[in-house]
C-alpha cells in the first residue's frame, strides 16, 4: 500500500512539474509533452519512457486497489455490529475518508485519461481541436464546470495525500519517536498542499485568465 502510494506520489510530482510548464507558455508546454514521448531515443523506442512509467503506474494501481479492497473487507468483517454512539477523538477527517477519497480519485483518473490521453475529448464548443496539448488544456479549463470537476478532484487528492503521506511513513517505520511522528504529520500537510495546490493552480489560472491561449 505504502509503496504503491509512494509510486503515485512520485508520478504526481513529475506530472505536476510538467503541468506547471503551462506558465512558461504554449511552446514550452508542448515541447515538454513532446519531449516526454521521445525521451531516451534512440535507446528507447518512441514513447518508451512514457510506457515504463505507465506500466509502473498500472502495477501500482493494481497493488494499491487490491490492498485497499482487502483492508476494507477486513475492517468490515472486524466489526459487523456497529456502535450506537461513536465519537472520534484523534483521527483526521482525511484518515476516515481514505476509501471514498481513493475511489473519487480513481473515478477522476478514468475521466481524466479519457479527457487528455485516451479519448482526447475537447468539451469546449469553441475549441480548436485536440492535437495541441496546450490548447486542449486551456480550452478545457475555460469551461467553469470542467475546472470545478478538477478542483473537486484536487481537493479529494489533497485529503488522500494528507493522511496517505503520514500513513506511508508510519507504515514504513519512519516514525519511531514523538518528533518523527510530528514531522510525518507536517509532511502530510506539506505534500497535500503542494501537490493538490500545485495541480489546482492550472485550472485556477486558466479560469482567472492568468493563463490563456
Amino acid at each position: 500500500m505504502a509503496v504503491s502510494g509512494l509510486v503515485f506520489l512520485g508520478y504526481l510530482v513529475l506530472h505536476m512539474y510538467g503541468n506547471l510548464k503551462v506558465f512558461a507558455g504554449h511552446d514550452s508546454f508542448n515541447e515538454y509533452a513532446h519531449h516526454l514521448r521521445v525521451f531516451g531515443e534512440p535507446m528507447l523506442p518512441e514513447n518508451g519512457l512514457l510506457w515504463i512509467v505507465r506500466v509502473l503506474l498500472i502495477v501500482a494501481l493494481v497493488t494499491h486497489v487490491y490492498a485497499a479492497v482487502v483492508l476494507t473487507a477486513r475492517a468490515r468483517n472486524a466489526r459487523t455490529s456497529k456502535y450506537v454512539v461513536k465519537k472520534n477523538l484523534a483521527s483526521s477527517l482525511s484518515s476516515r475518508t481514505m476509501r471514498w477519497g481513493g475511489l473519487t480519485i480513481l473515478v477522476f483518473a478514468i475521466w481524466h485519461l479519457l479527457h487528455f490521453t485516451v479519448g482526447k475529448v475537447n468539451p469546449n464548443p469553441d475549441g480548436t481541436g485536440t492535437a495541441d496539448p496546450y490548447n486542449l488544456l486551456v480550452e478545457s479549463f475555460e469551461l467553469w464546470w470542467m475546472s470545478i470537476i478538477y478542483l473537486l478532484a484536487m481537493f479529494a487528492l489533497g485529503m488522500h495525500l494528507h493522511h496517505g503521506t503520514w500513513s506511508a511513513m508510519q507504515t514504513l517505520g519512519l516514525t519511531g519517536t514523538a518528533r518523527a511522528r510530528a514531522r510525518a504529520k507536517t509532511a502530510g500537510w506539506v505534500v497535500a498542499i503542494v501537490i493538490a495546490g500545485g495541480f489546482a493552480l492550472v485550472p485556477l489560472s486558466v479560469l482567472t485568465g492568468i493563463v490563456s491561449k
Binding site: L71, R74, R79, S91, S95, H163, S167, Q170
Partner: peptide, 9 residues
C-alpha cells in the same frame, strides 16, 4: 482483527 491504516483513535 482489522488492518491498521494509521488512523490513531
Amino acid at each position: 482483527f482489522g488492518g491498521c491504516t494509521n488512523i490513531g483513535e
